[in-house]
Amino acid sequence: MAQHQVNYMQDGGLPVALTSIDKLVNWGRSNSLWALTYGLACCGIEMMASGASRYDFDRFGTIFRASPRQADIMIVAGTLTKKHAEFIKRLYDQMTEPKWVISMGSCANTGGMFNTYATVQGVDRVIPVDLYLPGCAPRPESLQYAVMLLQKKIRSQKAIKTQKPKRLM
């Protein structure tokens, strides 16, 4: 019996690609992670450096947006103080789902060297964090690696599960 096999992958073949919805959506999500410009302290400078000419964050699809409404990830770059804590919560609530948080630098992870009365001991006390990036301050390369890891995480998730709003509590 003759086999009528069609090689879709042949060049000039049918303009069809077979994939799952998950992969398609996640492909889109992971490659256009728009970040909120949320430079709080020293790490914010490294965040700017990774967006600037040498490190060029744009090639990851990561473009910095000033408004939380347009942002997908919040890179908490710097020390979160008690006075600022309510605003980070507010900005996080204003971001649209799906949203992710990278906590950049030791201060954001655990309070770091500022073990004082005025610093929040880790942003995870206020908002849920997806990725902790160690370093004081982390180099731009490591921030880019963190974004790559986050992309990996996003690709492994189910895209059309019922979205449970992320909350700490």
Binding site: K82, A85, E86, K89, N115, T116, Y117, A118, V120, R125, V126, L168, M169
Partner: peptide
Amino acid sequence: YPLQGDEFAAWYEVDKIFGKEARDII
């Protein structure tokens, strides 16, 4: 005033954002 803050300072952001009842959870 201690370096790491008194009790008010320790719970400041939790009390303000989530309320005192969230202390046990966080």
